[in-house]
Structure formats: structure tokens, C-alpha cells
Design a protein around this nucleic acid. Structure first.
Lengths: 345, 345
DNA sequence: CATCAAAATGAAAACGTGTTCACTTACAAT
DNA sequence: ATTGTAAGTGAACACGTTTTCATTTTGATG
């Protein structure tokens, strides 16, 4: 019976707490706002009663007048990807500590950032939005700029973006050249002549950047241009693409994968289907350094983008913009470096 | 210049749209509420103008009067775990299609569902909450029942919970006995005598259930009780625990892991550190059937809990409760079955 | 004791929406 | 032409909070 009543009883409001504590509703509001001035003993008493009544300020009502929703929107094509799930996890933890909650949306698998989705999302008034899709068009985001909602686009190097309107947004710049150079130097040191690039998604900006950069560096070092095989960042596609490379095409001495998961697919195809040894017959290098990469079954040599650094930079950007929205856009830069393990030696 | 102004310009409100379209603000509200009655041509005109003005109803304001936030809270200890990330991904997609957004919170790694976190989360007024931590205490949730916010606790079999107050909540029941029986039958068929159970987190209810059930079934079949080794669902811990099992303890013929990732750790320890063959010397069975389990490097035989079924059942429960909150609690049941691959043959 | 600045207080006005409730219009049936 | 009914309309209120601003209380200073 009482359970039933409890269940139906309305949520405690500031008014109820005020009545119970013999103060005005304003005092209750102040008690929950740390920088408001209120007699300490009074605040304590209010908080005490609030706790007894299980009262929490209603975020919806608060955000209506504050213009701050304390929500950070994240748009993700695939939560299951180890790389993205790591990012979500770490970001959510960091933001949660700062009092922000994560609002998660799933984008279409083909990376197309739907306008409907953005509009829908805007209804929730996120204080900030993080787009994981690197290929998002700047003009799609433009409609978002009202009410000073800042957008952070994550992509790598992004020479293409440099002169476009995206300079309006805060950016995270990943300098992947260093890591790629180290990797190719290592491969060349082992006498590799024919490198294949196992690509990621066609639309992915990071993917195109990586392909361009690998081609460039190979040329600089007097090596022949890479054989490029298409894939989509997934294990299965990478597996099949690798089979094609060796059965239809004429193989390679080394495979440079656009991401670690793709490298796993390549390794398994080589070892379990083609009967080739890694790193004996073919060397493999990945990209990202996800936790699985140190698993003994793969023990992957890979270009590392430090997650901790990345998230720290991201949180720094977000909090800065939330605190003073009028500041000009800022760019944070991140480096990469090769982590040497067992798939090249 | 105009960019600057756009940026600062306030977001379009229903009032603005109404003024622009020469209708009352109420008409605008109705235009966005499909079941409200409004002359079709009028609605079209309003929607047209709304689109031009980039207007979307403010969810905060709407939820204030509707008592529906269209938010579904999810509490997750580790987004990176393949099992959980899959669940988040599929659930978010399904709920998004129904007009709900995912509000993501990270619980402490030790599974302790913090009361502070729940209180904080309640401030956002989620229409529903999904707790991935199976060990959450019912009384912690009780404070949540006001305002008819339903809670869905996910756990397996949960005999312990049957008679407790948790019968207040809708539940998802996973019948893992079938799958476990099939697995043990298969092992016995291959002449396995000594089975080790590589556990998950101590606090995890699912883990304790699995241990109990394995012990029970082994006894029923006249086999000796399992050696139980502690772990925490992670690769690294499982790896070390397996080393201990064979170096400190006296080994086993088969390892039954509490989850697939743990099984990977065991396999790698056996193959790359202990010099044992899988399945030649030791057979391995996992739990979950995550996508990685079919990767050739592991090719794991495992007890499958079908994700699609699971999410469908979950969404069914959530939507039902959202539509008529007064209904009594319901329990959905899910089966399990063994997926035979290469680690037992 | 008087005076004044500073701190604490509460009434009222927002914030942007959905909903009620009378009211008007439109249209078919008598 | 008249009635009856349904559908369409808009003014006013409600949702729970923060913020302003004028007012009261406090506490220290002369």
C-alpha cells in the first residue's frame, strides 16, 4: 500500500522542501547553488531536509532559466568499435566529474551525419557536441551555432579543412606523420619493399589522410607506392580484403592497416587461411593501439594515438568553451609514435 | 559579421514561429504534436516556416509540463567491454528510433552503484533507467520509484532476487542453464575430467550464478567439482590467473570462463606462455559470444546469449512501461545455447 | 547608542512549452 | 432555415527552477 503511494507520490520540489524547512523557495535554490550567499546553518538545515525528502533540483527546469543543460552530446557511428568505446568511456568519466552528463546518439553506419539527427539532438540543448565522425561537413554544423553551442570536430591532420569554415570550431589536431614515418623506417630497415595499405572507410577523412601520408613518405624514401586495398575498419572486411590481396593481386611484404582491428583481420587471414607467417613472411603494422593490440595472440606493432592525452585535450577544450563561450576557437595538437611489438621483428 | 550575429542570435522559439506564420503559439505547439487536431494546410505552413527558422521544440520546457523527458538513463561500469558496448549500441539505436535519447553514466569499476550517482542522475528525470550492473541492491533503487520512473535490472537467473523486493521491477531473466549443460556435456564427451571455472567479478551476480550452476551440473553428471579461480572479466587478470592455475595449482583438462574476454586471456596464457595446445591439451569454453569470438585467432566455443533477442526484449519492456506506467511488473525470459567452434574439438 | 555597510532574505518575473476550457466556426442532417 | 455535432481555435494557467531587486536583518565601527 505505502509502496503504491510512494510510487505515485510526486517528486519532491523546492517548494515542498521550503515549506518543510520554514524558509522560502529561494533559500532552497540558494542552498544548492554553492556560490550563492546563505547563512551556513540555514543551508545545512535545508540540505538535511532535502536529503530526507530525497530532493534534487530538476535539471529541466533549471536549464530552462540557466541556459545550461549540463548535457554534452556525442554522435557515434559504432559504439562497439574499441577505439570509440574507449573514447566514450574516458570522456564520460571526465565530464561526469565536472558535472556534465553524456547524451549519446548513434549516427548512420555510412558516416553520413543526418540533418534530422542534428535537429532532434538540438532539441535537448546540449551545452556542447562532440562529433566522432571525421567526415562531417562543416555546413551541416553551421545550423548549430545558435545559442552558442560549440562543436568539436575530431579528425586527423585535416589539411583539407584548414582553410574552410571549420576554423570557426575548436579543433583537435592529430599529427600522425611522426608515427607513420617511424613505422615505415622500421619496415624499410627489415628490407620490406612492397607495402600494402589496408584502408578504412572511404568517407573517413582520417583514412584518406593516412593513405596520402603513407604514399608521400614511401616516395620520399625511394620506395614504390603502396598497393591500396579498400576496407571499412572492420575485422571481417579486412580479412577478406587480405585474402584478395594475396590470391587475386600479387601480395605484399608488409601490410599497413588503417586501424588495429583491421590489422587483426589481416593477421588472421595470413596465418590461418593463407598459411603465411607473421612477421616471418609478411609484416603488419596497425593504427590506434587499442587495448587488444597487446593481447598475445596478435601482439601488434602499431602507431599509437595516446588516448589519455587525447581525452585530456578534448576535455580542456570543452570546459574552456563552456566557461567563456566568447573566446575564439582554439586548436589542440596531439602527437603519435610507434609502439613496437611482435608483428614486424 | 553575420556569422557572429547568427552565433549570438537566440534560438527560435514557438512564439517567433507563431508571429512569423500569423497564428497563435498554441497552433505551433499543435503542429508539432501529431495527435493534436489542426487544419492540415495550416500545419504544413507552420512546419514550413519552422524549418526555415530552424526551430525545434525545446525538450527541457516540454518535459517540464509533459512529465516525459524522452531520456533513458544507462549506468555502465565499463563502456569498453565488448559485451556492454554492444548492448549500448543496439539499445541506443532502437530507442532513438522510438524518439528516446540515451543518457550515459559511468558507474564505479567495482560495481558499486553510488547513491550520489543515482541522485545526480535523477535530476535529469529519465523516463526509464537501465542498470547494467547486476549486483545493484534493490533498496538503492527504491528511492527512484517516485514519479513512476521504472527501473530495469539486468541479471541472470537471479534465484536470490526472486523473493526480494525486486519483484517491483520489470526484469529480464536469462536462463543460462541450457547453454551450460550443453557445454559440459560436450566436454564430458571429449573425456574431460577436471574442469576449472575462471570466474568473473566477485560481486557480479551473474558470475556467482554461473559458478553455482556449473558446480551443480558437474555433480549431477558425476564429475568432480570445479577448481575455481578468481578473476574480474578482464583479459589481463584472466591471463595471470591461468598461469597461476597451471604453475601454482595443478592445472585442469578444461577451462570454463565466465566471459569470452576472460577465455581469450586463458587461451593466450596456455598457448603463448605455458606452451600448451588448445584444444589439444586444454579445452576452453567461454560465455557471451561477442563478435571477437569468431575471430580466427581464438575461434572460441562459447555459450551464446543472443544480443538481438536480449535487446528486443529490453526495448519491449521499456516501451510497455513508458506507455502505461500503471501496469504490474513483467518478466521477459531469454534462453542460451552453446556455439561450437574450435576450442573444444 | 547611533550609524552605516554588508550580508541575508523573499516577492515577483522570467524561461519555453503543453494542456485545459470555454468559445467560435464549419458542415451535415433535419 | 434551423439545429446539432464535431472540429478548430486561443487566452490563461501550470511545470520547477533561477535571477533580479528592493527590503530587512546583521554586525561592526565611530
Amino acid at each position: 500500500m505505502s509502496e503504491r503511494n510512494d510510487r505515485k507520490s510526486a517528486r519532491a520540489t523546492a517548494d515542498l522542501v521550503a515549506r518543510e524547512a520554514n524558509v522560502s523557495r529561494v533559500a532552497v535554490s540558494r542552498a544548492f547553488n554553492p556560490n550563492a550567499s546563505l547563512k551556513p546553518e540555514k543551508r545545512d538545515r535545508i540540505l538535511q531536509i532535502a536529503r530526507e525528502l530525497n530532493y534534487t533540483p530538476d535539471m529541466a527546469a533549471r536549464s530552462l532559466v540557466t541556459r545550461r543543460s549540463h548535457l554534452v552530446g556525442m554522435i557515434v557511428p559504432d559504439v562497439c568499435s574499441p577505439w570509440e568505446s574507449q573514447e566514450i568511456d574516458t570522456l564520460t568519466t571526465a565530464l561526469q566529474a565536472e558535472g556534465f552528463a553524456t547524451l549519446l546518439f548513434k549516427a548512420k553506419a555510412d558516416f553520413s551525419m543526418d540533418h534530422t539527427l542534428l535537429t532532434y539532438m538540438r532539441g535537448f540543448n546540449p551545452d556542447s557536441v562532440i562529433a566522432f565522425t571525421e567526415n562531417v561537413e562543416p555546413d551541416v554544423l553551421t545550423g548549430f551555432l545558435d545559442r552558442a553551442v560549440p562543436i568539436y570536430v575530431i579528425y586527423d591532420d585535416g589539411a583539407q579543412f584548414a582553410d574552410k569554415s571549420s576554423s570557426l570550431y575548436d579543433r583537435l589536431l592529430v599529427r600522425q606523420r611522426d608515427g607513420i614515418e617511424q613505422a615505415i623506417a622500421l619496415l624499410q630497415g627489415y628490407g620490406v619493399r612492397r607495402v600494402a595499405y589496408l584502408g578504412g572507410k572511404r568517407q573517413s577523412l582520417a583514412n584518406r589522410e593516412r593513405e596520402r601520408m603513407i604514399t608521400e613518405i614511401l616516395a620520399e624514401r625511394g620506395m614504390q607506392p603502396p598497393t591500396v586495398i579498400d576496407s571499412d575498419y572492420t575485422y571481417d572486411t579486412a580479412y577478406r580484403a587480405t585474402l584478395d590481396l594475396f590470391r587475386v593481386e600479387d601480395g605484399a611484404d608488409a601490410i599497413f592497416a588503417a586501424n588495429d582491428v583491421g590489422a587483426f583481420g589481416a593477421i588472421d587471414a595470413l596465418r590461418h587461411d593463407l598459411g603465411l607467417s607473421v612477421p616471418g613472411d609478411v609484416k603488419v603494422v596497425g593504427f590506434d593501439d587499442i587495448p587488444q593490440s597487446h593481447w598475445k595472440a596478435y601482439n601488434l606493432t602499431t602507431v599509437r594515438i595516446d588516448l589519455e592525452d587525447r581525452v585530456r585535450a578534448l576535455v580542456r577544450l570543452i570546459l574552456r568553451r563552456l566557461r567563456n563561450p566568447e573566446d575564439g576557437p582554439l586548436t589542440e595538437t596531439l602527437g603519435t609514435r610507434l609502439v613496437v611489438r611482435g608483428t614486424v621483428g
